[in-house]
Simulated assay, not measured.
Amino acid sequence: MEISEIVISGDTPGIAWRLPIFRFKGSDDAAPKVYIQAALHANELPGTALLHFLCERLRRAQGEGAIRGDITIVPQANPIGTAQSHFGELQGRFDLGSRTNFNRDFPLIALGDRQTLIDDLDRYPATERLKRQLLHMALGADLVLDLHCDDESLQYAYIDEAFWPEASDLAAALDMEAVFLADGESSAFEEAVGYAWKYEAAEKATRLPGRLSVTVELRGTRDVYPDMARKDADGLWRFLAGRGIVGDDTVSVEPFRGQATPLDNIEMIRAPEPGAVLFHRTIGDTVAAGDLLATIITAPGTEGGTIDLHAPQAGLIATRTSQRFARRRDNLMKIACAGPAKAARKPGTLEA
């Protein structure tokens, strides 16, 4: 295993961040190359724990000569965000300086322009330099996994339709209960990778066989436990073995049996008024149209001081907020449904 680091100098004197990179050299130049990162949202740590245990296994595999394809791992992809706490609470999703989401505004370029990402880096602020260097590394691979988590959620993933159903092996290997099929048209990291591949040729590609760029949501922010992380690392190992990146003849991956849902079919349950939230249903529940989901206490102690929220259509509750006070229009749940969402929503990512 080769360990290196990228040093990102700060935008004020005396500050720099170090980004460790772990590389495992494969023995077969024809095998797929994979890039895996975690904690781009710095407070989302299940992926960091997963990669810690995966690296243990990869070190053993390297000693046994079982690594066939090049593997690059970045266990904590956002040292800038990791350094940003507010009143003792790690933030990590939004840069406190620029107020931008660390997983938005990645450059959208064609693959042939990859080198331009790191040309003249000093003219960019630190967060932009971080994003450009992460994207540059990822575009040197065939398979790209960006490990995140939700608030409270099932194991699921955002997968561009250009990679589906080929990517069902990843969903199966990680025991995902749901997949959200996206159109790949945002500036999030995984979609910026897909964009570069789609526009590699003069005509936009709609299918990308042999490639994969995906955001994996490893349950919720509090789901950071050794047994879970080891199980997820084993799942990722099965995926790597199935794709021929590591050698393991004992591995088999069952077909994906979860639910694959287009983003247009995700019902975002939002709070119409502020108040204390009482949930009646939880993640993993299958609900019917009209089922009671939550009650919001909008005027405590007064008659009629509550609002009930009902399921707009049948579906699977994939995520739920851990907060028990909602501001007006806060997101409370995501429900994966068979039909298009009832509420109008702008295209692209579900949340900022």
Rank of each mutant, 00 (worst) to 15 (best):
L40F: 06
F53W: 12
S27E: 10
G92E: 00
Q84N: 09
A77S: 13
N43K: 11
L96C: 04
R59P: 00
L40N: 06
L54I: 07
A31N: 08
K33S: 13
F94S: 01
A42G: 09
I80L: 15
I67L: 12
R57Y: 05
F94L: 06
R57G: 14
D70T: 13
L45C: 07
G92Y: 01
R57N: 13
R93Y: 11
V74F: 05
G92M: 03
K33G: 12
I71Y: 03
G63W: 03
A49C: 09
G26W: 03
R99A: 09
L90T: 02
R59E: 15
H41D: 03
S85F: 15
L54F: 11
G81Q: 04
A39G: 11
D70H: 13
L54P: 02
N78I: 08
F53S: 02
L50H: 01
I36V: 15
L45Y: 06
N78K: 10
K33V: 09
R68I: 04
G97A: 10
R68Y: 05
P79E: 10
D28H: 12
L54R: 02
G26C: 07
L40K: 01
I71K: 04
G65M: 11
E56C: 06
P79W: 07
V74G: 05
F94E: 03
A39D: 04
I80P: 00
A83Y: 09
S98L: 08
D95V: 01
Q91L: 13
L40A: 03
P79M: 12
D28N: 15
G65A: 06
L45E: 01
L90H: 05
T82V: 09
Y35N: 04
L58V: 05
A39I: 03
T82Y: 12
A77Y: 01
D70L: 08
A31P: 02
H86S: 10
E44L: 07
L58G: 00
F94Q: 02
H41N: 13
P75M: 03
Q62M: 12
Q91P: 11
C55K: 12
E44K: 06
Q91M: 11
L51T: 08
G47K: 01
Q62E: 15
G88Y: 04
P79S: 13
G97P: 02
E56A: 10
A38S: 15
A39Q: 06
D28Y: 05
C55T: 14
D70F: 04
G65R: 09
L50C: 12
G88K: 02
T82F: 10
A83D: 15
A38W: 00
Q76N: 14
G97S: 14
T82G: 09
A39E: 03
Q91I: 13
R60M: 11
D29C: 10
T72K: 08
E64T: 07
E89Y: 05
G97I: 07
Y35I: 03
A39L: 06
E56D: 14
E56T: 08
V74E: 02
A61C: 10
